[in-house]
C-alpha cells in the first residue's frame, strides 16, 4: 500500500458514493447511463469472486464488498426505483459491442488460463471501457450536470492514481502487471478529453 494506491481507492469510493447520493437525493437518474452502471456491476462481480476463495485483508474485503454493494444499489435505483427518470432513449450504446470483444480478448491474453484468472482479466479489460456508454450519452445529449462531472472526475482520477501506484511499485518492489498497466492506461486516456472539459469549464458540461 502506498499513497497513490490509497488515494486511488478513496477516489474510486468517492465517485461511487457521489453517484449513489446524487440519484438518491434528487430522486432521479437523469443523465446517467444505466448501461455503464450495469457494466461496472459486472466488472466488480467478475473481479471480486476471489472474496469466496481467499482472504487478503480486512481493508481489501471491506472495499470489495462496498464496491459490489454500491454497484448493485446503483443499478437497482436506475432500473427499478427511479426507472421513470431513466433516459433510456439517449442511453443507446450497445453493451455487447464491449462485452463480446473484451471476453474474447480476456480468453486470448491473460496470465493464466483458469476460470477465476480469465474472469479477473475480463473485468480489468471491461473496466477500461465501461464508461463509454456514459460518455456516449453525454455526447448525444450534449450536456452533463455538475454532480455528474464530479462523479466522472473522481472515477477517472482513480485509475490515473493507480498508474502512479504501478510506477511506484515497479521502482520500489520490482512489481508490474502488464495487463493491468495497459488497461489502466487505456482507461485513463478515455477520460483525458473529459478532464480537459472539467478543468476548463469547471461546472456542468455542455458541448
Amino acid at each position: 500500500m502506498n499513497i497513490f494506491r490509497l488515494t486511488g481507492d478513496l477516489s474510486h469510493l468517492a465517485a461511487i458514493i457521489i453517484l449513489l447520493l446524487k440519484i438518491w437525493k434528487t430522486r432521479s437518474c437523469a443523465g446517467i447511463s444505466g448501461k455503464s452502471q450495469i457494466l461496472f456491476a459486472l466488472v466488480f462481480t467478475t473481479r471480486y469472486l476471489d472474496l469466496l476463495t481467499s482472504f487478503i485483508s480486512l481493508y481489501n474485503t471491506t472495499m470489495k464488498v462496498i464496491y459490489i454493494g454500491c454497484a448493485y444499489a446503483t443499478v437497482y435505483l436506475i432500473y427499478m426505483k427511479f426507472k421513470a427518470t431513466y433516459d433510456g432513449n439517449h442511453d443507446s450504446f450497445r453493451m455487447e459491442f464491449l462485452v463480446v470483444p473484451v471476453g474474447g480478448l480476456a480468453c486470448l491474453v491473460n496470465h493464466d488460463f483458469s476460470f477465476l484468472e480469465i474472469l479477473w482479466t475480463f473485468s480489468i479489460y471491461l473496466e477500461s471501457v465501461a464508461i463509454l456508454p456514459q460518455l456516449f450519452m453525454i455526447s448525444k445529449t450534449g450536456e452533463a450536470e455538475t454532480i455528474t462531472t464530479h462523479y466522472l472526475f473522481f472515477l477517472g482520477l482513480y485509475r490515473a492514481l493507480y498508474l502512479f501506484n504501478w510506477i511506484w511499485r515497479f521502482y520500489f518492489e520490482g512489481f508490474f502487471d502488464m495487463i493491468a498497466i495497459v488497461a489502466g492506461m487505456v482507461q485513463t486516456i478515455l477520460y483525458c478529453d473529459f478532464f480537459y472539459l472539467y478543468v476548463t469549464k469547471g461546472q456542468g458540461i455542455s458541448l
Binding site: R5, D9, H12, D50, S54, I56, S57, N60, M63, K64, Y67, H111, E117, W120, Y162, N165, F175, F176, D177, M178, I179, A180
Partner: peptide, 10 residues
C-alpha cells in the same frame, strides 16, 4: 514476480 496478478489491488 514479473507478471503475476495482485489480488490485493482493487
Amino acid at each position: 514476480s514479473d507478471s503475476q496478478t495482485d489480488k490485493d489491488e482493487l
